[in-house]
Simulated assay, not measured.
Amino acid sequence: MTSRFAQLAFTPGVQRHQREHGSARAYRPLLDGPVVADRLGEAEREFVHERDSFYLASVGETGWPYVQHRGGPPGFLKALDDRTLGFADFRGNRQYITLGNLDHENRVALFLMDYAHQVRMKIMGRARATGDPALLAELTVPHYRAKVERAVLIEVEAFDWNCRQHIPRLVPLDAVERTVASLQERIAELERQNAELRAAR
């Protein structure tokens, strides 16, 4: 966990519970770190680029949180630099809840999952939507048929890598299908060789 993530997440109420449950001492050094935004390193940027989906949380005018799933081809979420993420906002159900929430409050949280390797990354930042043509061109995914309505930029404030405890190990369907196809080809080849050996007896 970074110091900046702890500074944002560990509110006075959170710290009270940490004291009551015995974890405050372990986390205290993080709170004393510099009050500067995190920068995405190579590992973080690579992890971002490999994702084909993520969860985006925003807060509405009534104070209720809203979590939205965003998906696309791997790499549709891009690290534009060490402080900025961006993605093409594809047309969905046209409820525009996140978009409306951003008009009121630009603070967001992202949850990026890699179920196959049991890895998760949390990001806090400030988001804004834009129709800037240059950004739309940079973030549009070639050959992906979804309609792009706008670009969304997220200025990263903090991130945290979580432990793998309790993450179910799930494998993408296309990876399973590739493995099964390869095994079926191998089985067919072995059956052919077996038939040839029997015929040669």
Rank of each mutant, 00 (worst) to 15 (best):
R28F: 04
R28Q: 13
P29G: 03
P29M: 02
L30S: 04
D32P: 00
D32R: 13
G33L: 01
G33F: 02
G33P: 02
V35G: 01
L40I: 04
L40H: 07
L40S: 10
L40G: 12
L40M: 15
E42A: 14
E44R: 04
E44K: 05
E46D: 15
F47C: 00
E50P: 00
E50W: 11
E50D: 13
R51D: 01
D52W: 08
D52G: 07
D52K: 08
S53F: 15
F54N: 10
L56S: 09
L56N: 05
L56H: 12
A57V: 14
A57D: 08
S58A: 07
S58Y: 09
V59R: 13
G60T: 05
G60V: 07
G60I: 02
G60E: 07
E61Y: 00
E61K: 06
E61W: 00
T62L: 12
G63F: 09
G63W: 10
Y66P: 03
Y66D: 15
Y66G: 08
Q68R: 03
Q68N: 14
R70W: 01
G71Q: 14
G72N: 08
G72K: 10
G72H: 10
P73E: 15
P74R: 14
P74C: 06
G75Q: 04
G75Y: 05
F76L: 08
F76E: 09
K78S: 07
A79G: 11
A79F: 08
D81Q: 04
D81V: 03
D81L: 02
R83Y: 00
R83H: 11
T84R: 14
T84M: 11
T84A: 06
L85H: 08
L85T: 07
F87I: 05
F87D: 10
A88V: 03
D89H: 10
F90R: 14
R91F: 07
G92D: 02
G92R: 02
N93S: 06
N93G: 04
Q95T: 08
Q95W: 08
Q95M: 14
Q95I: 03
Y96G: 06
Y96N: 07
T98A: 12
G100Q: 12
G100I: 02
D103M: 13
N106V: 04
N106Y: 01
R107M: 10
V108S: 09
L110S: 12
L110D: 14
F111N: 06
F111W: 11
F111V: 13
L112P: 01
L112M: 13
L112E: 05
M113L: 15
D114V: 11
A116L: 15
H117E: 15
H117I: 03
V119L: 12
R120E: 01
M121F: 09
M121K: 02
I123W: 02
R126N: 10
R126I: 02
A127K: 05
R128Y: 04
R128D: 03
R128W: 05
A129V: 12
A129G: 11
A129W: 01
G131I: 02
P133G: 06
L136E: 14
A137C: 04
E138N: 06
E138L: 14
P142I: 10
K147T: 13
K147G: 02
K147D: 10
V148C: 10
V148F: 07
R150N: 06
L153A: 07
L153Q: 08
E157M: 08
F159M: 11
C163Q: 04
R164A: 12
Q165D: 07
Q165W: 03
Q165K: 14
H166W: 12
H166V: 05
P168D: 06
R169P: 00
L170I: 14
V171Y: 09
L173H: 09
